[in-house]
Simulated scan of single mutants.
Amino acid sequence: MAYVAAAAVLLGLLLVTNLILTVGVIRRLREHTTELAALRDNGSGGVDADVAMPAGSPVGGFDATSVTDLPVSLATLGERPLVGFFSPHCQPCKERLPAFVEYAGTRPGGRDAVLAVTIGGREETAALAELLGPVATVVVEPDQGPVQRAFGVSGFPAFVLVEEGVVAASGFDLAPVLDRDAVALPATG
């Protein structure tokens, strides 16, 4: 009987210790989630500012091939391309993708003036390429590929509006880039 009581006490102590550790881990995860959400919402800590080159930066040169085997460079995209960078494993990319596709589908210049860069292999980015293909020229490249380096992309998603080879607007959030594009579109006719 003494063994059963000792085993019950020991089991109880283990359960209490496990409960205390679990509560601590959950509390820490909540803190991290709150901090990440704050960074994404307001760009503090450099998240938004560092996702791509800032406005006024000249875009580097690059040569790539689209998923339809056409050559792609800054020159092939026209004077005012809209560029989006997406990763198939990125939740914010999935959240912003529908708005990008919707806007790109109505943008003057059509898919030839919109570039979508998916990061990864062809198989893992196939679903993204299928969604983006009707509204954009799609390039698949590995992380830190030539297009990503040309635009200074360091996070996903990243959106860049280029005017005559210079970044006009960029960011993690699509809205400010689209606002800048909407303002400039009437001026270009």
Rank of each mutant, 00 (worst) to 15 (best):
Gly61Thr: 14
Ile20Gly: 11
Val67Gln: 05
Val147Glu: 09
Thr22Asp: 15
Val117Trp: 02
Ser87Arg: 09
Asp69Thr: 07
Glu130Val: 13
Glu35Asp: 03
Val135Ser: 01
Ser57Leu: 04
Asp48Asn: 10
Gly145Val: 05
Tyr3Cys: 06
Val138Pro: 00
Leu132Asp: 08
Phe172Gly: 06
Asp48Phe: 04
Gly145Ile: 04
Glu124Pro: 06
Arg27Ala: 15
Arg122Gln: 08
Val114Gly: 02
Glu35Ser: 03
Gly60Cys: 14
Phe62Arg: 07
Gly133Thr: 12
Ala52Val: 08
Thr106Trp: 05
Arg122Asn: 07
Pro54Lys: 04
Thr76Cys: 14
Leu74Asp: 02
Ser154Asp: 01
Pro54Gln: 14
Asp181Ser: 02
Arg30Met: 05
Leu128Tyr: 01
Gly133Ile: 07
Thr34Arg: 13
Val67Cys: 09
Ala64Met: 05
Gly109Thr: 09
Leu10Cys: 14
His32Glu: 13
Ser66Gln: 05
Val25Met: 05
Pro71Ile: 09
Leu39His: 03
Gly12Lys: 13
Pro92Gly: 06
Val4Gln: 15
Pro92Leu: 05
His32Ser: 12
Arg149Phe: 00
Leu10Ile: 14
Ser57Lys: 14
Pro58Cys: 08
Val16Asn: 12
Ala49Gln: 15
Ser87Gln: 09
Ala49Arg: 15
Ala2Asp: 15
Glu31Lys: 09
Ala5Pro: 10
Gly109Met: 09
Ala8Arg: 13
Gly145Pro: 02
Arg80Cys: 00
Gly109Trp: 01
Thr118Trp: 00
Glu164Asn: 15
Thr106Tyr: 09
Leu161Ile: 01
Gly121Tyr: 02
Gly84Ile: 12
Val183Asn: 03
Ser66Met: 07
Phe86Ala: 00
Thr137Val: 11
Asp41Gln: 12
Val101Asn: 08
Tyr103Gly: 03
Pro98Met: 07
Gly43Val: 09
Glu141Leu: 03
Ala168Val: 03
Glu79Val: 10
Ser73Pro: 04
Ala2Pro: 15
Gly165Ala: 06
Asp41Met: 07
Ala52Lys: 11
Arg111Lys: 12
Thr65Tyr: 00
Gln148Lys: 12
Val72Cys: 05
Ser87Pro: 05
Arg40Lys: 11
Ala168Gln: 08
Leu19Asp: 14
Pro92Cys: 12
Ala8Gln: 12
Arg180Cys: 09
Ile20Trp: 10
Val147Trp: 06
Asp179Phe: 13
Asn18Ala: 14
Ala129Thr: 02
Phe100Leu: 13
Arg180Ala: 13
Val72Gly: 02
Ala113Leu: 02
Glu95Val: 14
Ala116Trp: 07
Ala8Ile: 08
Leu11Tyr: 11
Ile20Lys: 13
Asp112Pro: 01
Arg111Val: 04
Pro71Glu: 13
Glu163Cys: 03
Leu97Tyr: 02
Pro157Val: 00
Pro146His: 10
Leu11Cys: 15
Asp143Gly: 15
Gly171Asn: 02
Asp69Val: 04
Thr65Glu: 12
Thr34Tyr: 10
Leu15His: 06
Val117Gln: 06
Pro134Thr: 01
Arg80His: 08
Ala37Ile: 06
Glu95Gly: 05
Gly110Trp: 06
Val101Leu: 06
Pro186Ala: 07
Pro157Asp: 00
Phe172Ser: 07
Gly109Asn: 08
Ala64Gly: 07
Val166Trp: 12
Pro134Gly: 06
Leu132Pro: 07
Pro98Asn: 05
Met1Gln: 15
Leu174Ile: 08
Leu77His: 03
Leu82Glu: 03
Asp69Gly: 08
Thr17Leu: 15
Ala2Gly: 15
Pro98Leu: 05
Leu185Ala: 12
